[in-house]
Design a protein around this nucleic acid. Structure first.
Lengths: 336, 336
DNA sequence: TTGTAAGCGTTATCAT
DNA sequence: ATGATAACGCTTACAA
């Protein structure tokens, strides 16, 4: 920048203003500066600008892990929206580890990010590190895995409604003994999915049967084991609603291996609408989580917070509506 | 930092040194500084440090898109290795668009990243924006999708060898009419996979049969169509080696729908070792691309460049060895 | 072992 | 419409 100033015989102030399109700058001067900048291929130093201005155009995004369709898609959504608005994103993984999560928060704060978007790790039980973020006046938005508490800005899927839709669908197909493969109940998403399941049963005036609700780790193996347990019941279920697709796959595998027909004997619905639902045979009905919309919405919520300024300490919740994709694993059941 | 200095009655130099563990600092002073820093919860400003030092601990990573198992896994590998070494990563997507790629490079340079790791977009034909990176003295490493040219540091998979292993495996299982679902031949990865296929045939003194090589877009539908074409041949193949897993899945679906048994009538091998290979029935034999190792290797190559200093303008190539995972789709064939 | 002071590349304030 | 100058928070010669 000093070079430009010397070359053109003007002050650095003028250069700075011309480059940042300040209103009070001569159009002639401006053009001259821009031209010379191109010629000398001037490279702006965002670090210096950020240091001076006290805020950068960097956004911290933390997820438990970046692999896996869900988070990769959400991050894609965030990055796309962010880059359109001139933000770059710094990505961090907590690897489901609170300690790592804390370290990442430190790193992001040190990097003077303009905001932090986070999906918390499974092992997160205390939230002081997030308090710190607020103390620093850095906008904080949670997505998918959110914190219970006050003054939380978050974007979540309406998991309960998704589960409700899934279960209602099974009920509409004539199923009456619907089992639920539940996920770890300390995670809100899984708890809400169980609520949605119960809500749907209730809407049909059905009593929930505790023996039909099996908690598992949502892995393929977990789904198999849980399903084996269900088949061993005196009266086995006529449908299974799994809170995750992998466990649904496990269920499908086990049912097939036992000669149980899907959907004729047992109908099956999963959750997440992963790619595997279209690979399995039969294809698995599942609830879509609107990953990309979640990313976009998360970024949008961040910008809203920025515009609102740190003065207003509002709490905003964006709730996305899930969508059920009906497939062969739960369709065309013979009426009972 | 000034606060700490005032509070302890020492200079900022001492503070700085204590915090960065400088050698010539009294252990007593150091402890005192660290303790007070904790108490006042001092937050270092990496931007300022980076500005002063001229180099940051940020790494730019650019991929065509972050969704999709392959790039997500590579990024995971990079991030994990990088964060262990104290680097944060800024992620960018080119969306397969050169213009976006150029903009991203500008952004990353402006952010004063310590290095740039990139997998180029499909539409990249001129490389001036990468030249610029070198002019700025910023280490540049390509992975997977690399640039042809001199002085290129890159990490790639040995695709040809992967295809060779896959085809040799089919040959060892007794197959002799092995078809190949080839990908778009302007991409070097698919070209190399075809070469590997041909090389394996040659190693068994088999003449390649052009009617057995079908180019398709590597989608599920593409794989189905290509396989239908193969089955219509006067002498259909006894095995299919697909350059991608999705197309392999398409092939499997079509074969099953036609009553062709896999692997008994037609054996099947894919490429990429995607999750779907373990969901399909039978599980599909596939070539693993070592995504995570690629990420690690890419980061390691970056650190080597840093250590070597900008003085040495070496060209380094890391070639990862693919690994064949043999599964039911190509195993236990009855001898012919 | 510790302190002084300059400077990294910007931008904001105040003056002209 | 433009310029001089200070400052953002940190590191590092150089000096003590």
């Amino acid at each position: 920048m000093a070079d430009l100033a010397r070359e053109l015989g003007v002050s650095m102030t003028t250069i700075s203003r011309a480059l940042s399109d300040h209103h009070s700058i001569g159009p002639v001067t401006k053009q001259a500066v821009l031209k010379l900048a191109k010629k000398l291929n001037y490279q702006p130093n965002h670090l210096a600008a950020a240091l001076r201005k006290g805020r950068s155009k960097m956004l911290g995004v933390m997820v438990p892990y970046i692999e896996g369709r869900f988070f990769a898609s959400v991050v894609h959504g965030i990055e796309t929206a962010a880059s359109r608005a001139g933000y770059s994103i710094i990505i961090c993984q907590s690897s489901e580890d609170v300690a790592q999560e804390r370290r990442n928060i430190e790193t992001l704060l040190s990097a003077q990010v303009a905001g932090i978007l986070v999906s918390v790790s499974r092992t997160t039980l205390d939230f002081r590190h997030f308090e710190k973020v607020r103390k620093h006046g850095v906008p904080l938005v949670f997505f998918d895995r959110v914190l219970e508490g006050e003054n939380i800005n978050s974007v979540v899927l309406n998991d309960q409604k998704g589960a409700y839709l899934a279960t209602r669908h099974l009920l509409a197909q004539g199923c009456r003994r619907i089992a639920h493969l539940a996920g770890p109940q300390h995670l809100n998403i899984y708890k809400n999915r169980r609520f949605g399941y119960l809500e749907a049963l209730e809407s049909y005036n059905l009593q929930p049967d505790d023996s039909l609700i099996v908690e598992c780790d949502m892995s393929v193996d977990g789904g198999q084991a849980a399903t084996a347990q269900l088949l061993a019941l005196p009266t086995p279920p006529d449908a299974v609603f799994s809170a995750g697709d992998s466990a649904a796959l496990g269920a499908l595998q086990l049912l097939k291996s036992r000669g149980v027909r899907v959907p004729e004997d047992v109908a099956l619905v999963g959750f997440s609408n992963e790619a595997l639902t279209l690979v399995a045979e039969p294809n698995i009905t599942s609830v879509d989580q609107r990953c990309e919309e979640m990313g976009q919405a998360t970024f949008r919520l961040f910008t809203e917070l920025v515009e609102a300024g740190s003065t207003t300490l509002t709490q905003r919740q964006v709730v996305l509506q899930p969508q059920l994709f009906e497939r062969a694993s739960s369709l065309h059941l013979s009426p009972k």
